[in-house]
Amino acid sequence: MLSIRNIVKQYATHRALDDVSMEIEHGKIFGLLGPNGAGKTSLIRIINQITAPDNGQIFINGEKLNPSHITQIGYLPEERGLYKKMEIGEQMLYLARLKGMHKEEATRKIKYWFEKMEMQTWWHKKVEDLSKGMQQKVQFVATVVHEPKLIILDEPFSGFDPVNAELITKEILELNKKGATIIFSTHRMESVEQLCDNIALIHKSHKILDGSVKQIKNSYRNNTYQIEYTANGTDFKINDELFELLNQQKLGEGQQITLKLKEGKSSNDVLAYLIPQVHITQMTEVIPSINEIFIQKVTALN
């Protein structure tokens, strides 16, 4: 769907993007992750043709990015904004027509979305009369009303209350199911971890990691397990050949330990060792969050 190849963007003294490449597959939900100032917004602006890269190319479905692609992209900027004194219906119509829709079709689509989002009565209201959350809904509709094939959401959940965030998530997943490719850009990695199929991590203008969420997480597993148990009088004995105890703490009636398996040992070995000594209630593998992976990766780079 979207192929980003060797993008370089240089501002006066600051290189915002340095040789960044990534592939975004059709119909997938893609997470563009990284801390503030990493270069995410610069990249998104380039995809939206708001600015041009100094070097590198972008292809959409094999075609070099050009103004005709504008109609296929829906963009929710990080900095939300609407005309304060313009009626909402009129405003939606204006934005949809700027995206190349015809008046009649745009009116129909807007009405459809207004109904879906339960905002039918808002048509003649002005933005300044709406609450922040309501404005966000309006902005979301403006992003998707022209049925874009690629939807780019920059910090999509900032400013939403939990109810609306849930609602928007539902709509995004539905659009994705209908075939739209979604790009989430955020510095709050945990917020989109569960939604994304693929991610790319950006740090200081460089892409430092990309791939499918599952694969990345798998490759960052390090044989760490969390076990909860209740001891019957005596605690278990440490076995240095089997595992290394990372953490132990009291948890209600019982205990919780975090341990790392030694090379070549499996979780079954640990269970077989512990079961005779204590009463095990739960055992889970500790899988690092994307956030932890990111920190690990950045520390390794330094």
Binding site: N48, Q49, I50, I70, I73, Y75, P77, E79, R80, G81, L82, Y83, K84, L95, L98, K99, Q139, A142
Partner: peptide
């Protein structure tokens, strides 16, 4: 106005 309300970014993406 367009700059402070930040609608500018939506418009220039079109």
């Amino acid at each position: 106005e367009e700059k402070t309300t930040r609608i500018i970014e939506v418009i220039v993406s079109s």
